[in-house]
Protein backbone atom coordinates (compact mmCIF):
# COMPACT_ATOMS: atom_id res chain seq x y z
CA UNK A 1 0.00 0.00 0.00
CA UNK A 2 0.99 3.54 -0.61
CA UNK A 3 1.03 4.06 3.14
CA UNK A 4 4.18 2.10 3.55
CA UNK A 5 5.86 3.16 0.37
CA UNK A 6 5.34 6.87 0.80
CA UNK A 7 8.35 7.38 3.03
CA UNK A 8 10.59 5.17 0.90
CA UNK A 9 11.28 7.95 -1.54
CA UNK A 10 12.51 10.21 1.24
CA UNK A 11 15.78 8.46 2.14
CA UNK A 12 17.19 9.12 -1.30
CA UNK A 13 15.95 12.71 -1.27
CA UNK A 14 17.43 13.08 2.17
CA UNK A 15 20.72 11.63 1.05
CA UNK A 16 21.03 14.00 -1.84
CA UNK A 17 20.12 16.95 0.35
CA UNK A 18 22.58 15.87 2.97
CA UNK A 19 25.18 15.56 0.30
CA UNK A 20 24.73 19.19 -0.49
CA UNK A 21 24.19 20.63 2.96
CA UNK A 22 25.57 18.25 5.48
CA UNK A 23 23.30 17.83 8.50
CA UNK A 24 24.31 21.13 10.06
CA UNK A 25 22.26 22.97 12.64
CA UNK A 26 20.79 25.35 10.09
CA UNK A 27 19.51 22.51 7.98
CA UNK A 28 17.99 20.75 10.97
CA UNK A 29 16.41 23.91 12.22
CA UNK A 30 14.93 24.65 8.84
CA UNK A 31 13.21 21.29 8.66
CA UNK A 32 11.07 22.33 11.60
CA UNK A 33 9.34 24.71 9.24
CA UNK A 34 7.75 21.61 7.82
CA UNK A 35 5.69 21.27 10.95
CA UNK A 36 4.54 24.85 10.66
CA UNK A 37 3.32 24.24 7.13
CA UNK A 38 1.64 21.02 8.13
CA UNK A 39 0.27 22.32 11.43
CA UNK A 40 -3.05 23.83 10.28
CA UNK A 41 -3.93 20.69 8.45
CA UNK A 42 -2.71 18.56 11.33
CA UNK A 43 -5.04 20.39 13.69
CA UNK A 44 -8.06 19.62 11.53
CA UNK A 45 -6.80 16.12 10.88
CA UNK A 46 -6.49 15.43 14.59
CA UNK A 47 -9.80 17.04 15.48
CA UNK A 48 -11.99 15.58 12.79
CA UNK A 49 -10.33 12.34 11.89
CA UNK A 50 -7.94 10.94 14.45
CA UNK A 51 -9.86 11.79 17.59
CA UNK A 52 -13.22 10.68 16.22
CA UNK A 53 -11.52 7.51 15.03
CA UNK A 54 -10.02 6.83 18.44
CA UNK A 55 -13.35 7.55 20.01
CA UNK A 56 -15.13 5.22 17.61
CA UNK A 57 -12.50 2.56 18.16
CA UNK A 58 -12.99 2.82 21.87
CA UNK A 59 -16.74 2.48 21.40
CA UNK A 60 -16.17 -0.65 19.37
CA UNK A 61 -14.52 -2.32 22.36
CA UNK A 62 -17.64 -2.02 24.47
CA UNK A 63 -21.06 -3.51 24.22
CA UNK A 64 -24.30 -1.84 25.08
CA UNK A 65 -27.43 -3.86 24.51
CA UNK A 66 -30.90 -2.41 24.76
CA UNK A 67 -31.84 -4.20 27.94
CA UNK A 68 -28.56 -4.22 29.84
CA UNK A 69 -25.82 -1.70 30.44
CA UNK A 70 -22.42 -1.00 28.93
CA UNK A 71 -19.66 -3.58 29.31
CA UNK A 72 -16.08 -3.73 28.16
CA UNK A 73 -15.72 -6.72 25.86
CA UNK A 74 -12.38 -6.16 24.13
CA UNK A 75 -12.30 -7.61 20.64
CA UNK A 76 -15.50 -9.60 21.07
CA UNK A 77 -17.39 -7.27 18.76
CA UNK A 78 -14.83 -7.93 16.05
CA UNK A 79 -15.06 -11.68 16.54
CA UNK A 80 -18.80 -11.29 16.31
CA UNK A 81 -18.53 -9.11 13.20
CA UNK A 82 -16.37 -11.53 11.26
CA UNK A 83 -18.74 -14.37 12.10
CA UNK A 84 -21.90 -12.32 11.62
CA UNK A 85 -23.71 -13.79 8.61
CA UNK A 86 -25.30 -10.43 7.81
CA UNK A 87 -21.95 -8.63 7.71
CA UNK A 88 -20.37 -11.44 5.72
CA UNK A 89 -23.18 -11.53 3.21
CA UNK A 90 -22.87 -7.75 2.89
CA UNK A 91 -19.18 -8.23 2.17
CA UNK A 92 -20.12 -10.82 -0.41
CA UNK A 93 -22.45 -8.31 -2.02
CA UNK A 94 -19.84 -5.57 -2.28
CA UNK A 95 -17.28 -8.10 -3.50
CA UNK A 96 -19.71 -8.98 -6.28
CA UNK A 97 -20.18 -5.30 -7.00
CA UNK A 98 -16.41 -4.85 -7.12
CA UNK A 99 -16.07 -7.68 -9.63
CA UNK A 100 -18.78 -6.37 -11.95
CA UNK A 101 -19.00 -2.64 -11.36
CA UNK A 102 -15.32 -1.74 -11.46
CA UNK A 103 -14.67 -3.48 -14.78
CA UNK A 104 -17.86 -1.95 -16.18
CA UNK A 105 -16.74 1.56 -15.25
CA UNK A 106 -13.19 0.94 -16.39
CA UNK A 107 -14.20 -0.43 -19.78
CA UNK A 108 -16.53 2.46 -20.47
CA UNK A 109 -14.01 5.02 -19.24
CA UNK A 110 -11.03 3.49 -21.02
CA UNK A 111 -12.80 2.97 -24.34
CA UNK A 112 -14.19 6.48 -24.29
CA UNK A 113 -10.81 7.93 -23.42
CA UNK A 114 -9.03 5.97 -26.16
CA UNK A 115 -11.57 7.00 -28.77
CA UNK A 116 -11.46 10.62 -27.65
CA UNK A 117 -7.67 10.63 -27.70
CA UNK A 118 -7.75 9.72 -31.37
CA UNK A 119 -10.17 12.45 -32.37
CA UNK A 120 -9.94 16.20 -32.46
CA UNK A 121 -13.33 17.14 -33.88
CA UNK A 122 -15.81 19.48 -32.24
CA UNK A 123 -18.03 16.46 -31.76
CA UNK A 124 -15.36 14.74 -29.72
CA UNK A 125 -14.82 17.79 -27.53
CA UNK A 126 -18.54 18.07 -26.99
CA UNK A 127 -18.80 14.37 -26.19
CA UNK A 128 -15.97 14.58 -23.73
CA UNK A 129 -17.79 17.22 -21.73
CA UNK A 130 -21.15 15.51 -21.91
CA UNK A 131 -19.72 12.22 -20.69
CA UNK A 132 -18.14 14.05 -17.78
CA UNK A 133 -21.22 16.05 -16.82
CA UNK A 134 -22.80 13.45 -14.49
CA UNK A 135 -19.83 13.93 -12.17
CA UNK A 136 -21.21 17.41 -11.46
CA UNK A 137 -24.45 15.91 -10.15
CA UNK A 138 -24.37 15.29 -6.39
CA UNK A 139 -24.53 11.57 -5.67
CA UNK A 140 -27.71 11.89 -3.65
CA UNK A 141 -29.46 13.88 -6.36
CA UNK A 142 -28.25 11.42 -8.98
CA UNK A 143 -29.57 8.47 -7.02
CA UNK A 144 -32.92 10.18 -6.40
CA UNK A 145 -33.15 10.89 -10.11
CA UNK A 146 -32.42 7.28 -11.07
CA UNK A 147 -35.04 6.19 -8.57
CA UNK A 148 -37.55 8.15 -10.63
CA UNK A 149 -36.15 6.87 -13.90
CA UNK A 150 -36.47 3.26 -12.77
CA UNK A 151 -40.11 3.65 -11.76
CA UNK A 152 -42.26 1.74 -14.24
CA UNK A 153 -44.93 4.45 -14.30
CA UNK A 154 -43.05 7.57 -13.44
CA UNK A 155 -39.97 7.01 -15.55
CA UNK A 156 -39.32 6.81 -19.28
CA UNK A 157 -38.22 3.17 -19.46
CA UNK A 158 -41.57 1.89 -20.65
CA UNK A 159 -41.61 4.43 -23.51
CA UNK A 160 -38.05 3.71 -24.53
CA UNK A 161 -38.49 -0.04 -24.57
CA UNK A 162 -41.78 0.28 -26.42
CA UNK A 163 -39.90 1.98 -29.24
CA UNK A 164 -38.13 -1.29 -29.93
CA UNK A 165 -41.17 -3.36 -29.12
CA UNK A 166 -40.01 -4.74 -25.79
CA UNK A 167 -41.51 -4.71 -22.35
CA UNK A 168 -39.46 -2.65 -19.93
CA UNK A 169 -37.64 -4.71 -17.31
CA UNK A 170 -38.54 -4.20 -13.68
CA UNK A 171 -35.41 -2.36 -12.65
CA UNK A 172 -36.28 -2.42 -8.98
CA UNK A 173 -37.07 -6.12 -8.67
CA UNK A 174 -34.87 -8.41 -6.65
CA UNK A 175 -33.34 -9.92 -9.79
CA UNK A 176 -32.50 -6.64 -11.45
CA UNK A 177 -31.57 -4.37 -8.60
CA UNK A 178 -27.92 -5.33 -8.83
CA UNK A 179 -27.66 -4.27 -12.44
CA UNK A 180 -29.64 -1.13 -11.74
CA UNK A 181 -27.14 -0.09 -9.08
CA UNK A 182 -24.19 -0.90 -11.32
CA UNK A 183 -25.74 1.35 -13.92
CA UNK A 184 -26.18 4.28 -11.53
CA UNK A 185 -22.59 4.12 -10.38
CA UNK A 186 -21.24 3.73 -13.90
CA UNK A 187 -23.28 6.68 -15.04
CA UNK A 188 -22.07 8.82 -12.17
CA UNK A 189 -18.38 8.00 -12.18
CA UNK A 190 -17.28 6.65 -15.57
CA UNK A 191 -16.98 10.19 -16.95
CA UNK A 192 -14.69 11.24 -14.12
CA UNK A 193 -12.45 8.22 -14.59
CA UNK A 194 -12.54 8.83 -18.33
CA UNK A 195 -11.16 12.35 -17.83
CA UNK A 196 -8.33 11.08 -15.64
CA UNK A 197 -7.42 8.40 -18.16
CA UNK A 198 -7.80 10.84 -21.02
CA UNK A 199 -5.50 13.29 -19.29
CA UNK A 200 -2.94 10.53 -18.89
CA UNK A 201 -3.24 9.59 -22.56
CA UNK A 202 -2.69 13.19 -23.59
CA UNK A 203 0.45 13.09 -21.54
CA UNK A 204 2.03 10.45 -23.76
CA UNK A 205 4.47 11.91 -26.23
CA UNK A 206 3.06 10.99 -29.66
CA UNK A 207 6.59 10.60 -30.88
CA UNK A 208 6.58 7.32 -29.04
CA UNK A 209 4.04 5.76 -31.31
CA UNK A 210 4.71 7.67 -34.50
CA UNK A 211 7.12 4.95 -35.53
CA UNK A 212 4.46 2.35 -34.98
CA UNK A 213 2.07 4.33 -37.17
CA UNK A 214 4.64 4.46 -39.95
CA UNK A 215 5.04 0.71 -39.64
CA UNK A 216 1.33 0.39 -40.35
CA UNK A 217 0.14 -0.52 -36.86
CA UNK A 218 -3.62 -0.18 -36.40
CA UNK A 219 -5.20 2.01 -33.76
CA UNK A 220 -6.18 -1.05 -31.83
CA UNK A 221 -2.62 -2.33 -31.77
CA UNK A 222 -1.29 1.05 -30.72
CA UNK A 223 -3.89 1.31 -27.98
CA UNK A 224 -3.27 -2.17 -26.69
CA UNK A 225 0.51 -2.37 -27.03
CA UNK A 226 1.61 1.20 -26.41
CA UNK A 227 -0.98 3.47 -24.87
CA UNK A 228 -2.49 1.22 -22.22
CA UNK A 229 0.87 0.01 -20.87
CA UNK A 230 2.06 3.60 -20.70
CA UNK A 231 -0.87 4.76 -18.60
CA UNK A 232 -1.02 1.66 -16.42
CA UNK A 233 -0.18 3.54 -13.25
CA UNK A 234 -3.11 5.90 -13.82
CA UNK A 235 -5.34 2.92 -14.39
CA UNK A 236 -4.17 1.35 -11.15
CA UNK A 237 -4.96 4.53 -9.24
CA UNK A 238 -8.41 4.81 -10.80
CA UNK A 239 -9.14 1.21 -9.87
CA UNK A 240 -8.02 1.88 -6.32
CA UNK A 241 -10.45 4.81 -6.04
CA UNK A 242 -13.19 2.64 -7.44
CA UNK A 243 -12.29 -0.25 -5.16
CA UNK A 244 -12.36 1.81 -1.97
CA UNK A 245 -15.61 3.44 -3.05
CA UNK A 246 -17.23 0.13 -3.94
CA UNK A 247 -16.32 -1.63 -0.72
CA UNK A 248 -17.81 1.32 1.17
CA UNK A 249 -20.86 1.33 -1.11
CA UNK A 250 -23.61 3.24 0.68
CA UNK A 251 -25.32 6.29 -0.74
CA UNK A 252 -26.79 4.88 -3.92
CA UNK A 253 -28.37 1.74 -2.40
CA UNK A 254 -29.49 3.72 0.64
CA UNK A 255 -31.31 6.27 -1.49
CA UNK A 256 -32.66 3.68 -3.89
CA UNK A 257 -33.98 1.69 -0.94
CA UNK A 258 -36.56 4.45 -0.65
CA UNK A 259 -38.28 2.98 -3.70
CA UNK A 260 -37.25 -0.67 -3.36
CA UNK A 261 -37.39 -1.68 0.27
CA UNK A 262 -37.95 -5.33 -0.49
CA UNK A 263 -35.17 -5.72 -3.01
CA UNK A 264 -32.63 -3.73 -0.97
CA UNK A 265 -32.70 -4.89 2.64
CA UNK A 266 -31.34 -2.59 5.35
CA UNK A 267 -28.14 -4.60 5.59
CA UNK A 268 -27.51 -4.85 1.86
CA UNK A 269 -23.93 -3.57 2.12
CA UNK A 270 -21.68 -3.51 5.21
CA UNK A 271 -21.83 0.26 5.38
CA UNK A 272 -25.63 0.24 5.24
CA UNK A 273 -25.58 -2.40 7.95
CA UNK A 274 -23.41 -0.19 10.15
CA UNK A 275 -25.70 2.74 9.47
CA UNK A 276 -28.90 0.93 10.37
CA UNK A 277 -27.30 -0.65 13.43
CA UNK A 278 -26.35 2.79 14.68
CA UNK A 279 -29.30 4.91 13.68
CA UNK A 280 -32.25 2.55 13.44
CA UNK A 281 -31.37 0.01 16.10
CA UNK A 282 -29.31 2.16 18.51
CA UNK A 283 -26.41 -0.31 18.59
CA UNK A 284 -23.68 2.26 18.35
CA UNK A 285 -20.94 0.07 19.75
CA UNK A 286 -21.42 -2.83 17.43
CA UNK A 287 -21.92 -0.39 14.55
CA UNK A 288 -18.48 1.07 15.26
CA UNK A 289 -16.98 -2.40 15.25
CA UNK A 290 -18.63 -3.15 11.91
CA UNK A 291 -17.25 0.09 10.47
CA UNK A 292 -13.73 -0.71 11.61
CA UNK A 293 -14.03 -4.29 10.43
CA UNK A 294 -15.00 -2.91 7.04
CA UNK A 295 -12.06 -0.51 7.21
CA UNK A 296 -9.76 -3.47 7.79
CA UNK A 297 -11.23 -5.30 4.80
CA UNK A 298 -10.84 -2.22 2.60
CA UNK A 299 -7.24 -1.87 3.72
CA UNK A 300 -6.44 -5.52 3.05
CA UNK A 301 -8.06 -5.53 -0.37
CA UNK A 302 -6.37 -2.28 -1.40
CA UNK A 303 -3.07 -3.67 -0.22
CA UNK A 304 -3.52 -6.92 -2.11
CA UNK A 305 -4.51 -5.07 -5.24
CA UNK A 306 -1.55 -2.72 -5.07
CA UNK A 307 0.73 -5.67 -4.37
CA UNK A 308 -0.55 -7.56 -7.40
CA UNK A 309 -0.17 -4.52 -9.63
CA UNK A 310 3.10 -3.27 -8.16
CA UNK A 311 4.79 -3.61 -11.54
CA UNK A 312 2.16 -1.54 -13.35
CA UNK A 313 1.83 1.13 -10.73
CA UNK A 314 5.55 1.60 -10.28
CA UNK A 315 5.24 1.04 -6.56
CA UNK A 316 7.89 -1.10 -4.98
Amino acid sequence: MATTTAPTSSPSAEASQQGKHRPDRNYRRRQRWGWLFVAPFALIFLSFLILPLLFAFRMSLFTNTLASGTDFVGVDNYVKAFTDPIFLSGLGTVAKFALIMIPAQMIVALLAALVLDNLATWASKFSRLMIFVPYAVPVVIGALMWGFLYSPRFGPAADLFNLVGLAAPEFLSQDNIFGSLVNIVTWQWAGYYMIIIYAALRGIDPGIYEAAVLDGATDRQIAWRIKIPMISSSLVMVVIFALIGTLQFFTEPQVLRGVAQGAIPVSYTPNMYAFSLAFSYSQFNYASAISFALGIVVFVFSFIFLFLTRKQSGLK
Binding site: P7, L49, L53, F299
Partner: peptide, 17 residues
Protein backbone atom coordinates in the same frame (compact mmCIF):
# COMPACT_ATOMS: atom_id res chain seq x y z
CA UNK B 1 1.32 6.92 6.61
CA UNK B 2 -1.47 7.52 9.14
CA UNK B 3 -2.99 10.03 6.76
CA UNK B 4 -3.28 7.50 3.96
CA UNK B 5 -4.49 4.71 6.21
CA UNK B 6 -7.17 6.88 7.79
CA UNK B 7 -8.82 7.36 4.43
CA UNK B 8 -9.78 3.69 4.42
CA UNK B 9 -12.14 3.88 7.39
CA UNK B 10 -15.77 4.34 6.35
CA UNK B 11 -17.29 7.66 7.32
CA UNK B 12 -20.22 6.03 9.07
CA UNK B 13 -17.85 5.26 11.93
CA UNK B 14 -17.11 8.94 12.35
CA UNK B 15 -20.55 10.45 12.51
CA UNK B 16 -21.37 9.72 16.14
CA UNK B 17 -17.98 10.74 17.55
Amino acid sequence: GILLGAVMVPLTALVIP
